[in-house]
């Protein structure tokens, strides 16, 4: 049974969330790229690669199944680091945790870190390899919703 969805204005630093499967299917990646007016890149072997922006968006989307954003919540910053190429169609999981919560100027800032890992290792050597990491910081009015 998955964790219940919690509101972002109730989380605390160190809180982690159950690993969430990421849908890196060709259809999903293409829909993201169409929305972002992007295009997939191919490596030298002709393998289509999942762009960093799609990895970030999918990870954030996965997190939103665990965390509800308060109304008026704004994105302050975002980071993604590709640890290795992620072929379109790969099986992956997203792990996430709250790394920081702070307040200033009447706003609460929450930083969520994520790690994307390989999910379908076929041998013991590659199980759970890190594919990408990143973080996002969002801000919202301290004490509740409203933009």
């Amino acid at each position: 049974m998955s964790q219940p969805r919690v509101s972002l204005d109730t989380v605390s630093a160190g809180q982690s969330f159950e690993a969430i499967p990421l849908d890196l299917s060709r259809d999903t990646v293409e829909r993201f790229l169409e929305t972002l007016e992007g295009r997939p890149a191919q490596n030298a072997e002709g393998v289509l690669l999942t762009p960093p922006s799609v990895v970030s968006s999918l990870s954030l989307g996965a997190l939103l199944t665990r965390v509800a954003l308060p109304d008026g919540c704004l994105h302050a910053s975002q980071e993604v680091i590709m640890a290795r190429p992620i072929p379109v169609g790969a099986s992956a999981l997203c792990e996430a945790a709250v790394s920081a919560v702070s307040s200033r100027g009447g706003l609460t800032f929450v930083t969520l870190d994520f790690t994307v890992r390989q999910a379908d290792a076929r041998d013991g050597d590659s199980g759970g390899d890190v594919l990408a990491t990143g973080s996002g910081t969002v801000m919202f009015p301290a004490g509740g919703s409203g933009a």
């Binding site: 993201f32 972002l36 992007g38 890149a41 690669l49 762009p51 960093p52 922006s53 970030s56």
Partner: peptide, 28 residues
């Protein structure tokens, strides 16, 4: 904000091709 993040990433992909998707780090 992630739409802008996507545009930044796409500009990098158009500049550097697969090298961006394979090894990129973007902080915005």
């Amino acid at each position: 904000g992630m739409i802008l993040f996507g545009y930044l990433s796409d500009a990098l992909s158009r500049t550097y091709g697969a090298a961006w998707d394979e090894s990129g780090r973007l902080r915005a």
